[in-house]
Design a protein around this nucleic acid. Structure first.
Lengths: 92, 92
DNA sequence: TCCTTATTTAGATATTTGTCTAAATGTATA
DNA sequence: TATACATTTAGACAAATATCTAAATAAGGA
């Protein structure tokens, strides 16, 4: 999960995840949303993939990137755990 | 919230948050849980403070660090938002 | 005031990170 | 096959980060 937290630390990568929340997109279309170069976006996409936050699938010339939510759920679990003093706390 | 995401990217800082989840602690006691030097821990604590993830309060010689959950909740909100295609989606 | 303890600040350094351009790879199509 | 398009890989470089030691600040007690 360390890689996921590191991936989430960059604003560009978080913005990519928000784009993919709406719909899967190929690399070029993702890059068009940003001012930075395509190779830089490709690098960010690779980090997101390594972190398990996105998946890629080649469709002919294009490579389609899709949000992968399992690790997102893990991160949410970690965050929730921080909120509760004890896991087994009684709620009243 | 960018500072919070950046703060969460470091394993030592996440471990500090988990320590503080149990109970508030002063800087020295926190540092004793790690192999790295006190000044390094002090630096991590400062980043967590800048990010709004912890608060500090001087008690005589000691400085007590306490988890501050508001920003944690904001991060959870952001993460949840990523999970749902639309915020206003009907649930059946 | 002087000494001890707790903590932070300052400054240095090695590593990591984000970005770029240029080149390579993979795919489609004439 | 030749060409164009989509994307990644390679390599370089500046900026950010994590760490350290040494010094400074803050508070308590003799």
């Amino acid at each position: 999960m360390n890689e996921a937290f590191k991936a989430l630390a960059d604003p560009t990568r978080r913005e990519i995840l928000q784009l993919l929340r709406e719909k899967s997109m190929n690399a070029g279309d993702i890059a068009d949303h940003f001012k930075i170069s395509k190779p830089s976006i490709s690098h960010h996409l690779n980090l997101l993939k390594q972190a398990g936050l996105v998946m890629d699938e080649r469709h002919g010339q294009h490579i389609l990137y899709t949000l992968h939510t399992t690790v997102v759920e893990d991160v949410i679990g970690w965050m929730f755990n921080i909120l509760n003093k004890q896991d087994k706390e009684e709620s009243s």
